[in-house]
Simulated assay, not measured.
Amino acid sequence: MNETINLLKNHRSIRKFKDELLDDETVKELVLSAQSASTSSYVQAYTIMGITDPEKKRALKEISTQSYVENNGHLFVFLADYNRHYELSKDKGTPISYDKTEQLIVGTVDATLAAQNLAVAAESMGLGMCYIGSLRNDMGKVVEILELPKGVIPLFGMVVGKPDHEGSRKERLPLDVIYHENTYKPVEETKDSVEEYDRSISEYYKERSDGKRDDTWSDQVIGMLSKKQRLDVDAVIKDQGFLGQ
């Protein structure tokens, strides 16, 4: 297997970093790597914001509740962004709209592709990283903290830095569960694979927690998805001009 594939397959989230900020050149190279990702129709409907202000990092940590949002080498926030396109369209006398679902999907996908490029670039440098979806715990507050104009929404963050622990690689769902060829497989066809995976994940948690935790993947995700979560996200997205009113 080549070096790139080995890097990708060895990914693990890092949540504890050495007390050392990334230098400007490293940040620049990471962002340039992110920008090299594919983008739908060359729209580039995203912005990457670096958060270095200690007060803003602290405020974002309060929303996330995760300490590493404040304590890291660098905090990036990925934004779906049509503000620049809208302002440019006014200058050119050809107004645009971005209030349809397709524009939200394009901005989200563009930002996510860029983020994953940045993640891989960081890991190739020996840095660790972790995505921060918990910034959506209060998306409206994040909009306020980052002073985001209409046409811009915060999707997620990413912390990057020099690892201060090894982390652990979590096994993913079996290939036959994720990869379907030509026709969508009925869930019944992969039930045995999921059950075997559940047993494996339960053992992983037992080992990591000295027996204090033994839940399965199925129990974990069904429990999470059965709860109402982040109900304000829809309203904030619409308030920023997406998905109509």
Rank of each mutant, 00 (worst) to 15 (best):
V109Y: 13
V109R: 04
V109C: 11
V109M: 09
D110T: 05
D110S: 12
D110P: 03
A111F: 13
A111W: 13
A111D: 06
A111I: 05
A111G: 07
T112I: 14
T112F: 05
T112K: 12
T112N: 06
L113P: 12
L113A: 06
L113H: 07
A114I: 05
A114S: 12
A114M: 07
A115P: 08
A115E: 04
A115L: 07
A115N: 03
Q116S: 01
Q116E: 15
Q116H: 13
Q116W: 14
Q116C: 03
N117T: 06
N117E: 04
L118A: 13
L118T: 02
L118N: 09
L118I: 10
L118Y: 09
A119N: 00
A119V: 10
A119E: 07
A119G: 01
A119L: 05
V120H: 00
V120Q: 03
V120W: 09
V120I: 13
V120L: 04
V120G: 02
A121S: 15
A121C: 06
A121Q: 11
A121N: 11
A121D: 11
A121M: 10
A121K: 14
A121G: 04
A122P: 03
E123K: 15
S124C: 04
S124D: 08
M125L: 08
M125H: 01
M125Q: 05
M125A: 06
G126Y: 09
G126H: 11
G126S: 08
L127F: 13
L127T: 01
L127E: 10
G128K: 13
G128E: 06
G128V: 05
G128M: 09
G128Q: 10
M129I: 06
M129V: 07
M129E: 11
M129D: 06
C130Y: 12
C130R: 14
Y131L: 13
Y131N: 08
Y131T: 05
Y131G: 15
Y131S: 01
I132S: 05
I132A: 01
I132Q: 01
G133E: 06
G133H: 12
G133Y: 04
G133I: 13
S134D: 13
S134K: 00
S134P: 00
S134I: 10
S134A: 15
L135W: 09
L135S: 03
L135E: 08
R136I: 07
R136G: 01
R136S: 05
R136Y: 12
R136L: 09
N137W: 02
N137A: 04
N137T: 03
D138G: 02
D138V: 01
D138I: 00
D138S: 09
M139G: 02
M139K: 01
G140S: 15
G140C: 08
G140M: 12
G140K: 10
G140T: 10
G140I: 08
K141I: 10
K141N: 09
V142Q: 11
V142P: 14
V142G: 08
V142H: 06
V143S: 14
V143Y: 07
V143A: 14
V143D: 15
E144G: 00
E144P: 03
I145H: 02
L146K: 07
L146I: 04
L146N: 03
E147F: 01
E147K: 10
E147D: 12
E147S: 14
E147I: 00
E147L: 02
E147A: 07
E147W: 02
